[in-house]
Design a protein around this nucleic acid. Structure first.
Lengths: 152, 152
DNA sequence: TATTGTTATACTCTATAACTATA
DNA sequence: TATAGTTATAGAGTATAACAATA
């Protein structure tokens, strides 16, 4: 029997659809999966890409600062910075004023990869969200930013 | 030195904020964390809660059907159904017509827990999103559903 | 042959506790 | 003592390959 059983009319998720969290997670999964695929050609994951963009925009910041702005714990950042350093995209400079800390800086290659990766992500996201007009996209971002800013 | 260094003006994420995926992930993290906390008193995680609600709405469905509607691979569902069965919330009934498959059914306890958990989630979500009016919340859900439906 | 459920496995993301070296 | 980075570890979520039982 290759086809579905007769009793298998259809599976409904209408109860779950009442919850914003359900929609949020499913939508996030779609975008994250596309994002991960887009970044693969640069040997970047979503988190290493985010970290790279943040270092570029805030050169010299410490790992503690990076962890804070990324909303994650410091230990989880070590492997991310290790990866970026091993790829030759970022360097750890000892902070002369506080020798416990590092100042994270871009390499020339890091800046180049960052620019190209951002362009690729912009392009893929635009294609993926092409059915949503500019006004709705801005409204969506505003609502998501509002949710994110909830302290809990 | 307890306070921040002078050079630490502020860390900016304005570059990342250009991407919908960034906002989506951060917002999703906030809601999922609250959801997980809400479900803890019922010994449920986000995925076991989702599965429980889906079994209640579609009694007799198979694990393959459940995996499909949840958007995940079959192997990952085994532990979820195991957990629900161990909690006494769901039972695996052998399908008489196809003895390879199970029909997933609610227990009385499962129905009771499901009803109370859904109420708790509704309540926590309403409180969390209280600053977003009904119209915006519906617009948000519509946009998220549209993104989710992208096949990729 | 193909499908259902399963085991084994691996990768990613997230979190906490405890260590080291500096401050 | 307190902080920056680190190690070790654990819990979740997700994915693929391969197997036994059944179709």
């Amino acid at each position: 029997m290759t086809q579905a059983s007769d009793k298998r009319t259809k599976v409904s998720d209408s109860e779950l659809r009442k919850f914003v969290g359900y929609h949020l997670k499913r939508a996030s999964n779609v975008i994250q999966a596309d994002l991960a695929e887009t970044l693969r050609e640069f040997d970047l994951r979503v988190l290493t890409f985010s970290a790279l963009v943040l270092v570029e925009e805030n050169e010299g910041l410490s790992q503690t600062q990076l962890a804070e702005v990324m909303g994650m714990e410091r230990p989880n950042l070590v492997a991310i910075v290790d990866t970026l350093e091993n790829l030759g995209l970022v360097v750890r400079d000892r902070d002369a004023a506080d020798r416990r800390a590092y100042e994270l800086r871009m390499t020339a290659k890091g800046t180049s990869v960052c620019t190209r990766a951002k362009a690729a992500v912009r392009q893929h996201e635009a294609a993926l969200l092409s059915t949503i007009d500019e006004k709705d996209r801005e409204a969506l971002i505003a609502l998501l930013a509002q949710i994110r800013s909830i302290t809990t």
